[in-house]
């Protein structure tokens, strides 16, 4: 995945079954962000792999004051990349089991 300066990782072990999973997001390189970033730390949140859209969650972070409006897309892309990886891993596990 592209290095967006924003890192997203699992905040819990993926059991491969739950639709809603805990993720943790933090800024690794604030120079890659357009807006001024206030050092706030890692943001933990739950994400529904089946129903939710990464860009919508990113927009909620912007509206909550965690990121500047101009960085919403970057945050959304970072979440999308991680979600795609989680889904890919799950599919691979299912294929391997079959």
């Amino acid at each position: 995945a592209e290095d967006t300066g924003v890192r997203v990782e699992l905040a819990e072990e993926d059991d491969g079954k739950k639709a809603s999973i805990a993720l943790k997001l933090w800024v690794e390189d604030h120079k890659k962000l357009k807006g001024k970033y206030k050092e706030s730390g890692a943001i933990e949140f739950t994400f529904d792999l089946e129903k939710e859209v990464p860009e919508v969650v990113a927009q909620e972070m912007v509206e909550s004051g965690l990121f500047h409006e101009s960085d919403g897309k970057t945050v959304g892309k970072s979440i999308r990349d991680r979600v795609a990886l989680i889904k890919w891993r799950r599919e691979r596990t299912v294929s391997a089991a079959a």
Binding site: G41, A42, I43, F45, E63, L66
Partner: peptide, 27 residues
């Protein structure tokens, strides 16, 4: 506490906590 909770109007909860130093990329 260093942990803060930010609740969005849509009801989503964001929990903000310090990032461990070891996980930060070296600049």
């Amino acid at each position: 506490s260093a942990t803060a909770q930010v609740v969005h109007s849509a009801g989503r909860r964001f929990i903000v906590s310090p990032v461990p130093e070891a996980r930060l990329k070296e600049q």
